[in-house]
Simulated scan of single mutants.
Amino acid sequence: MKGFPLKRMVALPAVAALAFGLAACGSENESGGDDGDSTKEGTQLSGTLSGAGASSQDAAQQAWSAGFLEKHPDVTVNYDPIGSGGGREQFTQGGTDFGGTDAALEGEELEAATKRCGKVVEVPTYISPIALIFKVEGVDELNLKPDTIAKIFNQKITKWNDPEIAKTNPDAKLPDTAITPVNRSDESGTTENFVEYLSAVAPDAWPHEVSGDWPVKGGEAAQGTSGVVQAVKNGSGTIGYADASQAGDLATVKVGVGEEFTAYSPEAAAKIVEVSERVEGRGEYDFAYDLARDTTESGAYPIVLVSYAMACAEYDDKKTADLVKAYLSYMVSEDGQAAAAESAGSAPLSDALRKQVTPAIEAISAG
């Protein structure tokens, strides 16, 4: 686990991760304003919070932690970016105070979280495109249709000069180079979101079940988002998927949406959430979304992850509840979202979505 007191957080490069949940105010505290500081003037938060989860939000986590700890310098945030699967496991088993995940709790994990918490708080805090990154000599950009993307990652298209790729890239000098798909080796919310996209838009070319575990053998596997980025960067003829905030200077794919090819951007990612619906039949404080991956909306980028903060509506002690409540409040605030957007290129939550999730965060308390 990594501790991030304020002085270290300001000095470190963008590394930390979707730290979802920390924050709060007790029953004597007032509801926060736009800056997310929900404590009364003169109230001093202190203590340590432990969390684990998605590795995709390193830059956003640093921004959130630095902004929050500037207001509350006696708070230490420990976050282990072990991936969404590990974060969900540790949170549901009671090993962490909060968790971060790029895929909402489901099935046995949701049942385990409910058993631990009574009522589960699960709110979106980070919306980001998943970029398709590649390194092919002499090629700076690519237009790829959904079926083509699915066939590449399913290893049915194996050369970069394949006619199907050439058809949508008539001006590119595509080499006779083998394609090396790079995927996550660990269970990952980024993987689950990408596979969910492939399953929705190209079911014939992608016959695999949706899961956080990569289903295709034979490609190159790497640990975490940073591992995938490094594998693509260090390889030749490589292509992978990663949170767009970590794409760096690698070339990226424009994805076919309807009759257009759309590049990733925060604005294009936010459009998907706007046309998506909340999953029914979950708890009152659970804001999981069924993303409209197969949209044909102009200007929409469909390969996105919506990262959630996992927390309990009720904790055993007031100090933990206060910290979790206050930190979540800061992350979804205008200030917190602006900090993440500047640092990680994420899409800020809309005012309407912020108003919807705020009552769930305000419900966090101690038993």
Rank of each mutant, 00 (worst) to 15 (best):
L142W: 01
K173G: 06
T320Q: 00
A341N: 03
S65Q: 13
A340N: 01
A263Q: 02
T358N: 07
V324R: 12
A52M: 05
A363N: 06
F98R: 12
S27W: 11
A112K: 11
V228N: 00
K156Q: 14
I272W: 06
Y327T: 06
D80W: 05
G118M: 11
A347G: 03
G3M: 05
D249G: 06
E111A: 15
S38Q: 03
V306W: 00
N193H: 01
G258L: 11
I361G: 03
G3K: 10
D37V: 15
L349K: 11
D58P: 04
I364C: 14
A344H: 06
G258P: 09
D176R: 05
S188H: 12
A347M: 09
E70P: 00
K325F: 05
R184T: 03
N78I: 01
C312D: 06
E274D: 15
A360R: 00
R278Q: 08
T177D: 15
A263T: 04
P163N: 13
T101G: 09
Y79M: 06
P302V: 00
S211L: 04
M310D: 12
V275W: 08
E187A: 15
G240F: 00
A59W: 10
G118D: 07
L18D: 11
I130S: 07
F68I: 03
D322V: 02
A178G: 02
A242P: 01
A247F: 10
S211W: 13
L69H: 07
Y308F: 08
E267R: 02
A242W: 04
K71H: 12
V15K: 13
A311C: 09
L291E: 04
T252M: 04
V306M: 13
G32K: 05
A172K: 09
A344L: 04
E137D: 15
E41Y: 02
E122Y: 09
G26S: 03
A344E: 11
L12C: 13
A352N: 07
I133T: 06
P124T: 07
A104E: 10
I133F: 05
Q230E: 15
T101K: 00
L144Y: 09
S343W: 05
Q62G: 09
C117P: 07
G227D: 04
E284I: 03
G51S: 12
L328T: 12
A11C: 01
D162K: 07
A340P: 08
P215Q: 10
V255N: 03
A19F: 06
S46D: 05
E362I: 04
G85I: 13
A321V: 13
S188Q: 08
P175Q: 03
L69P: 01
S265N: 03
P81D: 01
I130A: 13
S307Q: 13
F134G: 09
L69Y: 01
S188Y: 09
A14Y: 12
